[in-house]
Design a protein around this nucleic acid. Structure first.
Length: 171
DNA sequence: CCCTGATTCGC
DNA sequence: GCGAATCAGG
């Protein structure tokens, strides 16, 4: 039901440029149709900032394929922004090299049941985002990041198993 | 297929 | 007034 509070929140989020479906998620308990309907009844249709379907503007300079950028170089200079940019370019090169689906820079608003939730960067810092690549239903990460997430544990288990075998041989 | 807002109309 | 169904489009 549309309480005064929820209407206010609707107005606020709508004014901020969130799409109807995004507003619906924030409010909870309503569909995007409900939001659109309410927006019209309130006479809020026709925004100054129409929401864009998050167009992927990625010029992607194709000049860095060969020269592998080195994050450590930037880090040594203490330049955080350059370090961040270098890390991103390294990721881009890695992605291109291995023919992976590019990272989708998901935000908390973009995440769904089938987007990879592998965090990239420091939470709270400007550049922070999630991987956002495709993930199977029920799986928190894409195949690449699932490997990163679970392989160490696997290796640990294997190490454990090997130690057990060795101990058994000794005794 | 994902998404966007707009409109209609039974409730 | 409400919002699901539907439409028209990106």
């Amino acid at each position: 039901m549309w309480t005064d509070e929820r209407v206010e929140l609707l107005k606020k989020l709508w004014a901020e440029g969130l799409s109807a479906s995004q507003v619906a998620k924030q409010l909870g308990g309503v569909t995007r149709n409900a939001v659109i309907g309410k927006v019209h009844r309130l006479g809020l249709s026709g925004r100054a900032t129409p929401s864009r379907p998050a167009r992927s503007r990625a010029p992607a300079p194709r000049t860095l394929v060969r020269g592998r950028p080195d994050p450590l170089t930037a880090e040594a200079r203490g330049d955080e922004r350059q370090r961040e940019a270098a890390a991103e370019r390294a990721e881009a090169a890695h992605v291109e090299e291995r023919g992976l689906e590019p990272i989708q820079r998901a935000t908390v608003l973009t995440l769904t049941e089938h987007t990879c939730k592998w965090p990239i960067g420091d939470p709270g810092r400007p550049g922070f985002h999630f991987c956002g690549r495709g993930a199977e239903h029920g799986a928190p990460y894409c195949t690449e990041h699932a490997r990163m997430a679970y392989q160490p544990a696997q290796a640990r288990r294997n190490r454990e198993r090997d130690r057990m075998r060795r101990d058994r041989l000794v005794s």
